[in-house]
Design a binder for these strands. Structure first.
Lengths: 148, 148
DNA sequence: TAACTATGGTTGTAGATACAACTATTTGGT
DNA sequence: ACCAAATAGTTGTATCTACAACCATAGTTA
């Protein structure tokens, strides 16, 4: 049985890089006694930019299952970073709002994340970054097209 | 507070792509009544290429915590895909061997994974793929250097 | 209007991940 | 030879993820 070398494909790099970055960001937060996961940070980022998002939309834009988002939001609500609010015109919908504590935490953690990204992308020419992002976009498009 | 556009960095793409690919590969397996996760498949791949790896080395080469590998191997052993074996010359060590069932399952799933990767990388020039992998390698090097 | 369908969300269950704390074994230094 | 440090692995606990099944509400169609 002939094996292709998976290290010549993009897949394993994406998987490992994701694990390693999750690990590192959680560690950086912990070192400053910040109780926040990378995933929670992403939710804060979206809400900080646009408050009152629909729970399901949050799941969609972060490529998560709605049940994952339910649990993620449970944990964040338990920690008073955000709150659920019933939508008036459609009672099925939860609108998600960022709380002061969440806003402050995001402002505190944003520089940490930016620094992490700077460190990560250090020494990589802007041109290479742009090309890489373009390739990743294409990969995602291919993938989503095939998922249907 | 000024927000950099994180979509201009590589991070969010890696995170989403990882989620989406995990989702897709698990789905493809399930559609063929194959009870195997993407993560278990990776372990099978390594053992298929080189049997009898040390458990801790498996954790390292897959960028996982050793406790994660303990649980991953528990699940795979429960399903008779692999087995633990005590090392003779160092009784702390577990050697991990692939079982016939695991070998057969890997041979059955390899074409599925190869096809998935082909579909994913479709339309992307070889040159772009190579450049992207180079960039991802650099990212990982930067990250691991910073993690210490 | 009634029945069917689609949508938003939760719960049960289970795998994956990892930190903290622990046991067992080996290695190394005195 | 002994004791401290390093190494391999497990367990308790917690978060993240998602499928299956479900409830409630809204939209659509007969």
């Amino acid at each position: 049985m002939i094996l292709i070398d998976f290290n010549d494909t993009i897949l394993p790099w994406v998987g490992r890089l994701n694990l390693e970055f999750t690990y590192l960001s959680n560690k950086k937060f912990r070192e400053q006694n910040i109780n926040l996961s990378k995933e929670q940070w992403i939710v804060l980022k979206y809400l900080y930019q646009k408050d009152g998002l629909i729970q399901n939309d949050l799941a969609f834009i972060t490529s998560r299952d709605k049940t994952s988002m339910t649990r993620l939001i449970n944990n964040m609500e338990k920690n008073a970073l955000i709150r659920r609010e019933n939508c008036e015109y459609d009672r099925r919908i939860n609108l998600i709002f960022i709380e002061d504590k969440g806003r402050q935490l995001f402002e505190k953690t944003l520089p940490i994340m930016q620094n992490l990204i700077d460190v990560l992308q250090k020494g990589i020419p802007r041109k290479s970054l742009e090309q890489t992002i373009e390739t990743l976009k294409t990969l995602e498009t291919n993938l989503l097209k095939y998922t249907d």
